[in-house]
């Protein structure tokens, strides 16, 4: 199953990694420029006094990447109802769907880990622990939103009926708004475990679409 998912998404995953890393790198370039022009002390000051995180351009990038990944992975399954082929394989339907989702989740998490490694690699050299960890904690809800966008995208695309799909899109927008309620750095810090659980719960949504597909809803 992973081989099939790899064939569908390999080029996009490379693009996703380059895009998110590019945005992360651009954020670091902004920090570097401020430090080079005004001194690193000024960079520390604006972070503390004006809540600047330097990587704010990255905010919606994981969401867009998650949605596009869902499109790349599940549109080919719904094209001419190819999903029937997948569901006819001699494995349980739950396992087949979970393996497909696991591929997407693993790819999204791997991309986030690479981004974090890039951010940490530079920031830990020039910023105090408290400052770089503040930036990384601030970015975590954005990456969770990317994961949520992927799972909600899968739920929407796998839904067999167009009318229901529109309802799903509205619900998905409302669900995603939760990840962007506040732009204040560290605003989600105490809420992150709940936000993570909330994101994991979205894994089950695709099963609703698959069950409806199996019932022949159109």
């Amino acid at each position: 199953m992973f081989y099939k998912e790899y064939l569908k998404t390999r080029w996009y995953l490379l693009l996703m990694l380059l895009t998110t890393s590019g945005f992360a790198g651009y954020g670091l370039l902004r920090l570097h420029r401020v430090a080079a022009v005004n001194g690193i002390g000024h960079a520390w000051e604006v972070m503390l006094m004006h809540d600047v995180v330097f990587i704010d351009l990255l905010e919606y990038v994981p969401v867009i990447c998650g949605l596009v990944l869902a499109l790349m992975q599940f549109v080919p399954e719904m094209y001419h109802k190819c999903l029937k082929l997948t569901l006819h394989l001699p494995v349980s339907h739950l396992k087949a769907v979970n393996q497909m989702l696991l591929w997407g989740v693993a790819a999204t998490v791997a991309c986030a880990v690479v981004n974090y490694a890039i951010l940490w690699g530079y920031m830990s050299q020039v910023l105090a622990n408290e400052l770089w960890s503040r930036i990384l904690w601030t970015a975590l809800p954005w990456y969770l939103a990317g994961l949520a966008a992927y799972l909600l995208g899968a739920w929407i695309i796998l839904e067999p009926a167009w009318r229901r799909r529109i309802v799903n899109i509205v619900v998905a927008v409302l669900v995603l708004k939760v990840y962007f309620v506040s732009e204040q750095p560290m605003a989600y810090f105490g809420f992150l475990p709940w936000l993570a659980l909330y994101t994991i719960a979205l894994l089950s949504f695709s099963w609703i679409s698959i069950s409806r597909f199996k019932e022949g809803k159109e």
């Binding site: 099939k4 080919p76 094209y79 109802k81 190819c82 082929l85």
Partner: peptide
């Protein structure tokens, strides 16, 4: 199983 239109994975 052969699906109508000889559908197979296009990719």
């Amino acid at each position: 199983l052969l699906i109508e239109g000889h559908v197979q994975y296009q990719f």
